[in-house]
Design a protein around this nucleic acid. Structure first.
Lengths: 248, 248
DNA sequence: ACCTGAACACCGTTCAAGT
DNA sequence: ACCTGAACACCGTTCAAGT
């Protein structure tokens, strides 16, 4: 608010500069999306209300409706911007698998940069331009790896779904307040808590889970994520055959 | 509301019956969760507000706070009830794979019965009792299939995540109003629309996606879901080896 | 065409006051 | 201990009125 006032004043002091930077830039969709993304980055998705975004732009919420038809509309435009940050990968056929893992890891990173935005991605099919590039890239890599078309198509879907779901899980994990308020960023107690729950289960009712308490909670987020990606990729090749062979 | 008034009246008409059914049963957590679940079932998760639940119980929202500490708390208890509807499966080692598919298909069905509830499951780790039974069951089946412990543990996680994410996707798909308002339940136009988008893409920029428009949109929800499950299961066995063999 | 203040119809949650 | 009315501090969205 004060910044805007200052800018306006300095604009009056220097009545005209050759570069004529906009004293107070007119509202636009890009500005709105930017402001909203700053809010998620600083806090999380809940902090993005039409009122908070408007306040950041020094105006009222009603003003946003010229450029955005909805809160949902705003959220989708934000997601599109976030996904456009992901760089596609030039296919090197020999490294298709690593490249696939890299691609989706980058997607997860982008989503994680804006806690909660993954939420928006879940369920809106991937038909915006920035997502189309990613789908195209994934298909190219899977085909380079010799995955048949139908399996490549469904695997792409599954990989995106798994990635976005992981993103949602991570963002929620960050939100949940760890029972001890003096630690801030760690979610270690959280996993440790889960392990404690598993380990303390009655052995006769939970023979597998209770004995696997350590195994269940081993590995960090990235390792588990990559395991899932690898599983889907490996499975894409063989799952149909298996399903048929075993008579399902 | 009117029903409650009627019940109260008939209670006055017959001052005492031997079976003494509760004229107006006292509030309890189970009653609250039931009322809330009826609301999701009839509509969707957005319809579950503390106010709407209270109204259904013929009281005010403030009254619920004796039995439920939060809206989030209420949602989690609802999820726990929904997951408790899923029956676990007695392991038959020869059919471990089909049984795994069946188990998670049943989970998806339960989630789909309450549109939007899957949302709650995403991110809250599986440490409630009803979920623990499902985890135990999945571990038992994977072990029966000869999957090593670490892979079985991570695969269980991945299978649940994929299932819940699919549930969220389905519930959102049902919510999205198809552009043509005269059809109500079908989401066929939606997939058809995606296919149209894919098919109309410029071939030079989207060589794979544009040519795979039909392949990408083939198969119904269940078929795609089962593909994903099968992929994760098949991949659980081989992904680590592959990752190491290919030097990732 | 764009902006805005004020209002509308909602939320979750709290709290003093009742029984 | 349980319930409740009223209030508080929010929402998204609309709309008439301004420029």
């Amino acid at each position: 608010l004060s910044t805007c006032t200052l800018e306006k004043m300095s604009d009056l002091d220097e009545p005209r500069s050759r570069r004529d930077r906009p004293a107070k830039p007119p509202l636009s969709r890009a500005l709105i999306v930017n402001a909203a993304l700053e809010l998620v980055k600083a806090d999380r998705l809940d902090a993005v209300t039409l009122r908070s975004v408007a306040e950041r732009l020094d105006t009222g919420p009603a003003s946003l409706y010229v450029y955005v038809s909805n809160r949902e509309d705003l959220l989708e435009r934000m997601l599109e911007r976030v996904l456009s940050e992901v760089q596609t990968i030039a296919v090197e056929p020999l490294h298709w698998r690593e490249q696939l893992i890299d691609l989706f890891t980058t997607v997860l990173d982008a989503l994680s940069r804006y806690p909660g935005i993954a939420h928006v991605a879940l369920g809106s099919l991937l038909t915006w331009s920035s997502a189309l590039d990613l789908v195209e890239n994934a298909l190219a890599l899977l085909r380079a790896g010799g995955i048949p078309d139908q399996e490549a198509a469904w695997a792409t879907d599954a990989l995106f779904l798994f990635t976005v779901a992981t993103g949602v899980e991570h963002s929620i994990e960050r939100v949940r307040p760890p029972t001890e308020p003096h630690h801030k960023s760690t979610s270690i107690d959280y996993i440790g808590n889960a392990r404690a729950v598993f380990a303390s289960l009655p052995v006769n009712r939970y023979p597998n889970l209770s004995s696997m308490a350590t195994t269940m909670t081993r590995g960090d987020d990235l390792e588990r994520f990559r395991f899932g990606l690898n599983a889907i990729i490996s499975g894409a090749r063989s799952s149909l055959d298996n399903a048929i062979a075993e008579g399902a």
